[in-house]
C-alpha cells in the first residue's frame, strides 16, 4: 500500500505497550496491536469519550458494548482517524498513529465496516470489491483476489449486480468482504448485524470467526445484540458515558449486576 510514513520508533512507543528496545532492534512484534492512552473526544461541551485506555491484542476478537451514547462509535472513529482526538494517544503496533490521516492508518493495517452499509450502490459487486484490491494486485492476481472475496462474501453469481440491488444482509457481507480484502491486521465492525434476520446473523458471525481464525485478523466489533456478542466474543469491553466501565469475558460481563443496570436495563 502507499503512503507509508517513517517516524522515530523509540519516540512513538506508547507507555503501556509491551515492547522492548531489544524487540524493536530484532523486529519482533508485540502482542498488543492497538492501544489507546487517555483518549478524549469532545464535541463542544459534550465529552463523547473520556480518558479511554483500551487495548486489543494481535488476533483478538473483542466486542464493544454499551448503551446508546456510550461513545462506542466515537471510539472507532477515533481509531480510524475519522475524528481527531481532543486529547490522548493511539498506538498501533507500537507506533503513535494519533496524528495520521485515515488513509495512512489503513495503510498500516486498520480497516473498517461502517454502521450503515457503505457500499457503492451504482457499482457492481465486482467493481466494489476491485476498489480495495486494485491497490496491491494487478492482472490475474487481482481477478483471483476479487473472485475469492466475492465467494467469501457468499455473493458468487452476483458479480455484475449493482450493489444497491442487494439485500441489507448481502450489503453487510459485501462491505465486510471489501474491508477484509485489504488484508488488514485489525478490522473494526460497527454493528454488523443490525437489522438482519437470524440466518443472516449466523452467516455474519461465521464469517467473522473464520476471518479471525484462518487469517488471524483482530476484530473490534460494536454490537447491541448480546446473543451475537456471546457467539463470537472472547473479551468484551463495556463503555458507559464515554468511559471504560468493565472489561472481561462475556460470561462475567453478562452476569455483572452493574452492567445489567446500566446497559441491559435490569435491576442490580
Amino acid at each position: 500500500m502507499s503512503d507509508t510514513e517513517t517516524e522515530s520508533e523509540t519516540d512513538s512507543l506508547g507507555p503501556n505497550v509491551r515492547q522492548t528496545a531489544a524487540e524493536l532492534a530484532t523486529g519482533d512484534r508485540t502482542e498488543t496491536l492497538l492501544q489507546t492512552d487517555g483518549l478524549v473526544k469532545q464535541f463542544g461541551g459534550f465529552t463523547a469519550t473520556d480518558d479511554v485506555d483500551f487495548s486489543v491484542d494481535e488476533g483478538e476478537l473483542r466486542c464493544l458494548i454499551g448503551p446508546n451514547g456510550a461513545g462506542k462509535s466515537t471510539l472507532l472513529n477515533l481509531i480510524t482517524g475519522t475524528y481527531e482526538a481532543s486529547d490522548g494517544s493511539i498506538y498501533y503496533n507500537g507506533h503513535d498513529i494519533t496524528d495520521l490521516d485515515p488513509h495512512q492508518r489503513v495503510s498500516r493495517g486498520i480497516s473498517m465496516k461502517f454502521q450503515v452499509p457503505s457500499v457503492y450502490g451504482d457499482l457492481s459487486v465486482r467493481e466494489n470489491v476491485r476498489l480495495p484490491v486494485q491497490q496491491f494486485a494487478d492482472g490475474e492476481e487481482r481477478r483471483r483476489l476479487v473472485a475469492e472475496a466475492i465467494e467469501a462474501a457468499g455473493l458468487t453469481g452476483y458479480e455484475d449486480v449493482a450493489a444497491a440491488q442487494l439485500s441489507h444482509g448481502q450489503q453487510q457481507q459485501l462491505e465486510i468482504g471489501m474491508a477484509a480484502a485489504l488484508e488488514p491486521d485489525l478490522l473494526l465492525l460497527d454493528e454488523p448485524v443490525a437489522g438482519l434476520d437470524v440466518a443472516e446473523r449466523e452467516a455474519i458471525a461465521e464469517r467473522i470467526m473464520r476471518l479471525n481464525e484462518e487469517q488471524g485478523i483482530a476484530f473490534i466489533v460494536i454490537e447491541h445484540d448480546t446473543d451475537f456478542v456471546a457467539s463470537i466474543a472472547e473479551e468484551v469491553t463495556v463503555l458507559h458515558n464515554g468511559e471504560v466501565f468493565r472489561e472481561g469475558p462475556i460470561e462475567e460481563i453478562e452476569s455483572d449486576p452493574e452492567v445489567q443496570r446500566i446497559y441491559l436495563g435490569g435491576e442490580s
Binding site: D101, P102, H103, L131, Q135, M178, L182
Partner: peptide, 9 residues
C-alpha cells in the same frame, strides 16, 4: 469517507 477507509488519499 468509505473511499478514505480503503486507504486512498
Amino acid at each position: 469517507d468509505r473511499t478514505e477507509m480503503f486507504g486512498y488519499n
